[in-house]
Design a protein around this nucleic acid. Structure first.
Length: 767
DNA sequence: CAGTGAGCGAGCTTCCGCTTGACTT
């Protein structure tokens, strides 16, 4: 039996550390937190100074029992969870559960997984920092109180099963506010003018020089007048300015910057990025992937330096240490970097290779020289106008870090003046080749992607590296938000061109409103957000987290008592919850669209029991209202009365087949055909429910019937409720609406009724 | 799975932050 038991948070970390420590040390992992607040009565005794009631999480019972046993058998237990608020609390919970008095606990911390760092940590144990633990308890209790008091208000006032919380509700608010900015954006066209000049070099070769006018015109008339004057104008170089520009590399990856870059460069969702990174981490290929630190260990900087010298030479080397700038960072780990910098690539699945290379390049680049550019600006005077034409160009003098890595931006229509400027002298007259004026529309702020929302949350200090991906998925599973593509429309732009003394008009088409994998708030998201901002504005305030974080820091410094801080927050908050429960009315987001043009009945849209819907007419003794669900992409806030009325064209009857009526409608899962009480989905992008005809419907019905036949591997006359079917995950047994697995070694076609029943019985016994 | 659109109303839902697998119909 080992003399020493070391407990860390992550099993992969345990494996690595065990190698450094040798035989006398057994290194185990707690798999994160082992206890949490009970669910009953908040798990908090509000009357008794908010005393938390912790229980061992069900999925941790096994590991806790194992750790308990090992702790008893060991002479010493080293608590080596991360050095931050949560890590300190994990150690404290472990000490409590394993029966170690906190003052006797051997708490050790290290920020990098190297032999030196760990041996040093072992030599410097300390007691558990109770103040830091209390800061964590305050954080935990506050989040529970907010979440478990606000959510039930929503169940009562909006819809059951909804949720609210310090983090998710702000995330939704950001999306709702951005959506409104986009929808209310007033786009205005202006004319942008670009002139092309021909410049002869010393060798007689002609190069083009493009210059943009420093003014944009609002009307066609103004633009025409400008071009008219250019017909007779002379163009002279007024000034040439060149200045050197340095570009520095970005710091190494944190969780949030990795999610952003993987999204921009490869289109990965944030959870996809985290799953791939987890694989790389478990395989020992990268350091820990949930971090807010940009710090690199000395060892890492050393090996990075070596790799740069070997691949690119001394000219490209410039080592540096970066400082974290994000709010509330706790820096328990290093930045995300390759474990071994000498491996510029790895073997494995394509996505893992891609992400690894991205991390490798980013890390390498962070220790490379700045890129040197020369930026040139040329001002060109127009003899008969006061406006100036400006040409800008950039020349790369030394690539530096850009040789391996360039960061992408969220701005898709980024236009960089990176053209080469021919040598020019002040006072030089230029030969105008043509001038083009093109309409350009101002565009609304961009909608958030998953990754850009994470970026924003991090800027506001809301959420942690371990919760960014789960938060993004929570707001989607609650259906506050959908991730979607939008087709967009074509818009026609007006253009004017001056060439050879003549002005001609032309048009150009441009795609607008096109969106790819963007987050859109739903009606539920909007209604919940408006309700929360109206009644609990302080909780969904963008600075709420930042201000409570300041108080948590005070608690951690021993300058504030944690439950007193909670009390100051809870008292007014709870009163507000009570007041809202009692006085506010139900919130359905109802919006009146006016009256039906033919029948005069009122048309309204609101959230009903089954989601957003339109209603024509009101319920009373003689009239019954009609209902229709809103289509995908339609919002209560923006739908027009015409669009709403159109929804009532469905379901429509399209004829008879096999002596039964065939109808077409749109349901919760999209457009469908209904025939003899069976449903058949319409093909996405192929069939339109408004135009689909009987012939096409018959084809769909027959296709579905054949597909269903193929699905059946075996049926039994004696037991019609039992079937062997082919499903998404392979063959399975279906019995009384329940499904059962078939062992992979068994050929499903050979199963007898008895075999199936045996498999069902076996599966039931396992549970 | 998809149709519906009220108030007889059981019992349930829910937070954030640490960690990984389990395992889908």
């Amino acid at each position: 039996m080992a003399e020493n038991l070391v407990i860390v948070e992550s099993p992969a970390k345990a494996k690595t550390i065990e190698k450094f420590l040798g035989k006398d040390y057994l290194v185990k992992s707690s798999y994160g937190h082992i206890r949490d607040l009970a669910k009953k009565e908040f798990g908090i005794n509000i009357k008794k100074n908010y005393e938390p009631h912790y229980i061992i999480s069900p999925d941790k019972k096994k590991i806790v029992a194992e750790l308990k046993k090992l702790a008893q058998e060991s002479a010493q237990v080293w608590l080596a969870s991360d050095e931050d608020r949560e890590g300190e609390a994990i150690s404290w919970h472990l000490a409590e559960v394993l029966g170690i008095p906190p003052e006797k606990a051997k708490r050790i911390v290290f920020h990098e997984i190297t032999k030196e760092a760990i041996l040093k940590a072992i030599q410097n144990p300390r007691p558990i920092d109770q103040n830091l633990v209390n800061a964590q308890q305050a954080r935990r209790v506050l989040d529970r109180l907010v979440g478990f008091e606000l959510s039930p208000v929503l169940w009562k006032k909006v819809k059951p099963s909804l949720s609210a919380g310090r983090v998710q509700s702000v995330a939704v608010r950001l999306l709702v506010e951005r959506e409104r900015e986009v929808l209310n954006f007033n786009t205005v066209p202006v004319y942008r003018v670009v002139a092309v000049f021909e410049v002869a070099g010393s060798d007689g070769k002609i190069t083009e020089l493009k210059a943009e006018l420093d003014k944009k015109f609002n009307t066609r008339e103004e633009t025409m007048a400008f071009l008219e004057s250019c017909k007779v104008a002379e163009f002279v170089v007024e000034g040439v300015e060149t200045k050197p520009v340095k570009k520095s590399p970005s710091p190494p990856f944190t969780t949030s910057t990795l999610q952003q870059e993987a999204s921009r460069k490869y289109g990965f969702s944030v959870s996809q990025t985290m799953t791939i990174a987890q694989k790389l981490y478990e395989g020992g290929k990268i350091t820990y992937m949930r971090t807010d630190s940009v710090n690199l260990s000395d060892l890492a900087i050393g090996t990075t330096k070596k790799a740069i010298l070997k691949e690119f030479g001394e000219k490209y080397l410039k080592t540096r240490q970066y400082k974290t700038k994000s709010r509330g960072a706790q820096e328990a780990h290093e930045a995300i970097r390759p474990t071994y910098m000498e491996h510029s690539e790895i073997a494995g699945p394509a996505n893992e290779k891609k992400l690894y290379e991205l991390i490798w390049k980013r890390t390498i680049a962070s220790q490379m020289s700045e890129a040197l550019l020369e930026k040139t600006t040329v001002n060109i005077r127009i003899s008969n106008r006061k406006e100036t034409l400006v040409a800008t160009g950039e020349v790369l003098l030394f690539d530096g870090f850009m040789r391996v890595y360039r960061e992408s931006t969220d701005d898709e229509n980024g236009e960089n003046g990176s053209e080469l400027i021919p040598p020019l002298k002040q006072g030089q007259a230029l030969n105008m080749e043509s001038i083009e004026a093109m309409q350009r529309f101002s565009h609304a702020p961009a909608r958030y992607t998953e990754a850009s929302l994470v970026k924003k949350l991090e800027e506001l200090g809301i959420g942690r590296p371990s919760t960014f991906a789960p938060t993004i998925s929570t707001i989607q599973t609650r259906e506050y938000v959908v991730k979607e593509d939008r087709q967009g429309t074509i818009r026609t732009l007006d253009g004017l061109k001056l060439k050879d003394g003549k002005i001609t008009g032309f048009i150009k088409n441009e795609k607008t409103g096109f969106e790819k994998s963007k987050l859109f708030p739903t009606d539920i998201g909007i209604v919940v957000n408006d309700f929360l901002t109206e009644h609990f504005g302080n909780i969904v305030d963008f600075n709420f987290t930042a201000s409570v974080e300041e108080e948590f820091d005070e608690i951690a410094d021993g300058k504030m008592v944690w439950y007193e801080m909670i009390h100051r927050f809870y008292k007014p908050f709870h009163e507000q919850v009570d007041l809202t429960q009692k006085t506010s009315s139900r919130s359905s987001g109802e919006r009146s669209l006016g009256n039906h043009p033919e029948t005069g009945e009122p048309v309204v849209v609101k959230i009903g029991r089954y989601g957003p819907m339109a209603q024509i007419g009101i319920a009373n003794e003689d009239t019954k209202p009609r209902f229709a669900r809103l289509a995908k992409g339609q919002l209560i806030e923006t739908i027009t009365i015409e669009e709403a009325i159109k929804l009532f064209a469905l379901p429509r009857s399209i004829g008879d087949f096999e002596d039964a009526a065939v109808t077409v409608g749109i349901g919760r899962f999209g457009p469908y055909i209904r025939h003899k009480s069976a449903f058949y989905s319409l093909k996405k992008g192929v069939d339109d429910p408004m135009t689909v005809d009987l012939d096409r419907a018959m084809v769909i019905i027959i296709e579905k019937r054949t597909a269903d036949l193929m699905r059946v591997i075996k049926e039994f006359d004696e037991e019609p409720e039992l079937k062997v079917l082919n499903g998404r995950f392979g063959p399975y047994i279906s019995f009384k609406k329940k499904n059962f697995k078939i062992p992979k070694t068994t050929d499903p076609a050979t199963l007898s009724l008895e075999d199936c029943k045996a498999l069902i019985a076996k599966s039931s016994n396992d549970k």
